[in-house]
Nucleic acid binder design. Structure first.
Length: 113
DNA sequence: CAAATGACGTAGC
DNA sequence: TGCTACGCCATTT
């Protein structure tokens, strides 16, 4: 087998598949963080990888990637980038207050404490 | 194949 | 309260 085969679990799912699954499960109008997702898939500390996976999503993906923000409660894109504006726009569209690019984890974080 | 990179997080100062 | 330094590791150069 080639050494660049995706890491798989006992169920056969790749880490990437698990991340997609979690992102798809984020409720409308709620958000979660990269670190939280890493924990949910049983790999705490892999927060950077979560970002890498989302970065590789095809442009036409229907996954709600915009509901993923960083632990500071902010959008992880430069404020002047189009990506930032797109994410902010999608969040505002579903009722998440982020006019300043900041989201209240206290109010929107998923899963609930 | 070695080194740099990145949609992160957190401990330390 | 804010910055810096590191750890993390798949992916890219």
């Amino acid at each position: 087998m080639s050494s660049h085969q995706p890491e798989t679990t006992s169920s056969g799912a790749t880490l990437r598949d698990m991340i997609w699954q979690i992102v798809a499960a984020i409720p409308h109008g709620r958000v979660t963080t990269y670190g939280t997702i890493a924990r949910l898939i049983g790999h705490p500390g892999h927060s950077r990888y979560v970002g890498t996976v989302l970065k590789q999503l095809p442009g036409d993906s229907r996954l709600p990637w915009h509901r993923v923000i960083n632990s500071r409660g902010a959008i992880s894109f430069p404020p002047d980038s189009t990506a930032f504006l797109r994410q902010q726009q999608r969040l505002l569209q579903e009722g998440v207050e982020c006019s300043d690019g900041r989201i209240s984890l206290q109010r929107y974080l998923w899963p609930d404490q």
